[in-house]
């Protein structure tokens, strides 16, 4: 029993070992797939945007509706935040500038930091929270209640109708909103100036504007288009591929906000590095 058993055990052991390695590579492959599939999927999802954008028909109605929602719904929040940022920035910078007797630099300095950094980033972060979560939740609930499937079966391209319209709207509206934030921020800053000195708005504004250069404005503007695109794509991606029930809709909305905010910071860092090279 033991003699033939010896050879038998060996082969069985070997077989078992082989199976083990096979299982390991299999699970490793699956693990890698699980880890990296979302990244690949999101890139494919973003690439599809450009393909669908150039193919007619264009979802004009839905696009305008989204522009309206983004602009109108974010306006109050952005106005308040922009105003406070301008105000706070001015009050905080004033003492240090006063030390060097450079108070006259204040409008220019505030304008530069608003236009280059604070305006775009604050706008994008607010929109990532506001719009990113709304899109994630909206598309997610459309997915779980089979509304996206209903579009599919009536031969309506849901990507085009839902995603192209939304992403294009964020890409165009967030630059507009951030220009608006900058303007409101300047008003806040002017209000803060008026606590100590009496300066007319026109004079203050032209002093601030005179300080701005091409490299302050254009890279910052380009950056906001990227922010808008990222927020739209991430919000839609998280919602579009929701699987499961209502609780996954909440998770998608949450993930959209977190990922979009992170993307804003990463893009900002890259943009600053690139601008620095110019």
């Amino acid at each position: 029993m033991s003699a033939p058993g010896g050879a038998g055990t060996e082969t069985i052991n070997e077989m078992y070992k082989n199976m083990q390695t096979a299982a390991d590579t299999e699970s490793l492959r699956e693990l890698l797939k699980k880890k990296f599939a979302p990244t690949g999927d999101s890139i494919a999802f973003a690439a599809r945007f450009f393909r669908e954008l150039v193919k007619p028909p264009f979802p004009g109605r839905e696009f305008l509706h989204q522009c309206y929602l983004i602009g109108y719904k974010s306006c109050p929040l952005i106005s308040l935040t922009g105003f406070i940022m301008g105000l706070v920035l001015t009050i905080q910078s004033r003492p240090s500038l006063a030390q060097f007797g450079a108070e006259s630099m204040l409008p220019g300095m505030v304008a530069t930091s608003l236009v280059r950094e604070i305006g775009p980033v604050i706008t994008a972060l607010i929109c990532a929270g506001n719009i990113g979560s709304r899109m994630g939740a909206e598309l997610g609930s459309m997915r779980v209640t089979e509304q996206i499937d209903a579009m599919e079966v009536s031969a309506i391209n849901p990507y085009k109708f839902l995603v192209v319209s939304r992403v294009l709207a964020t890409t165009l509206m967030i630059p507009l909103l951030s220009v608006y934030t900058n303007a409101v921020g300047m008003i806040g800053s002017w209000a803060a100036m008026n606590i100590h000195t009496n300066i007319g708005f026109t004079r203050y504004f032209s002093a601030a504007m005179g300080h701005l250069e091409f490299l302050d404005i254009v890279p910052a503007l380009v950056k906001t288009f990227l922010f808008g695109f990222a927020i739209g794509i991430i919000g839609c991606f998280k919602g579009f591929y929701v699987r499961g029930g209502t609780e996954s809709v909440g998770r998608a909305a949450n993930a959209a906000v977190v990922t979009a905010s992170l993307a804003v910071f990463v893009l900002d860092m890259l943009a600053v590095q690139i601008t620095d090279l110019i």
Binding site: T145, D149, S154, N157
Partner: peptide, 20 residues
């Protein structure tokens, strides 16, 4: 596929109306 889908009507179990 969309050409075929246009000729096929599908009534969902939960209606799936566009709620917006």
């Amino acid at each position: 596929l969309n050409e075929v889908r246009l000729k096929v009507g599908f009534l969902f179990q939960n209606a799936a109306l566009y709620d917006s």
